[in-house]
């Protein structure tokens, strides 16, 4: 049985239709990359998937959703807020407990943020902030990770590191990515979206970036 079955005539928000004739199955353990032009509907599809999966999935939204005034520790710790008592959360807000710092630290080491653990997010660079948001999702106990352009603000080397960390921690991963080469390397299944429809859904192995050209060609040609 698939993890998620999507059968939708139309998907949209505020009365605007973004996706049409959606038919999609997602299996446990898949590594999926969503590709397509910006505005094609990748974020809408990710949001739909996240809503359907509910609390079981960790999310890295495109706008990151970090609390700038809090430290990296706090923002990453927030991935497990729902598992802890309010009192423990309050205590950690005022003064991070050693036990929880020890839990968060390995995640940050993976992402090379360990020396920034008690720095407020507002003082970090764009790439560091993006890694913090990924850290929060990795710290989230869910087996599924949904991320919207999680490596857009870091260089290629770091991008690979982050993607490696993600795949090592989470069995099922669904990402939206604009870097085609990276998407083919990372994913085992590619879903291409064009003009609000799924235009491509194939195994990634053996593909080259040029095979995706059709997705990016002008639609009013």
């Amino acid at each position: 049985m698939p993890l998620l079955e999507l059968r939708e005539e139309t998907v949209g928000y505020n009365g605007i239709t973004v996706l049409r004739e959606l038919e999609l199955n997602i299996e446990q353990g898949e590594r999926i990359a969503l590709v397509g032009e910006s505005g094609a509907g990748k974020s809408t599809l990710l949001n739909l998937i996240h809503t359907r999966l509910g609390k079981t999935a960790a999310l890295v939204p495109q706008e990151l959703g970090l609390v700038q005034a809090l430290s990296v520790f706090h923002n990453v710790y927030m991935g497990r807020l729902h598992q802890r008592s309010v009192w423990r959360n309050l205590r950690n807000l005022l003064k991070p407990a050693k036990a929880d710092v020890d839990l968060v630290m390995p995640v940050l080491e993976r992402l090379r943020l360990e020396d920034k653990i008690f720095t407020s997010v507002g003082e970090l660079s764009g790439g560091q902030q993006q890694r913090t948001a990924v850290g929060r999702a990795l710290f989230h106990p869910g087996y599924i990770l949904i991320a919207d352009e999680p490596v857009s603000a870091v260089d290629e080397h770091q991008a690979r590191e982050i993607l490696d960390a993600i795949t090592a921690e989470k069995p099922t991963v669904i990402l939206a990515m604009h870097d085609r080469e990276l998407a083919i390397k990372f994913a085992d299944r590619l879903i291409g979206i064009r003009d609000g429809k799924i235009a491509l859904d194939e195994a990634a192995s053996g593909m080259t970036p040029n095979d995706l050209d059709d997705l990016y060609r002008n639609s009013d040609r």
């Binding site: 996240h50 609390k55 999935a57 960790a58 999310l59 706008e63 990151l64 959703g65 927030m78 807020l81």
Partner: peptide, 8 residues
């Protein structure tokens, strides 16, 4: 963010 927690 969409998956922000609730309550206290």
């Amino acid at each position: 963010r969409q998956d922000a927690t609730t309550g206290f």
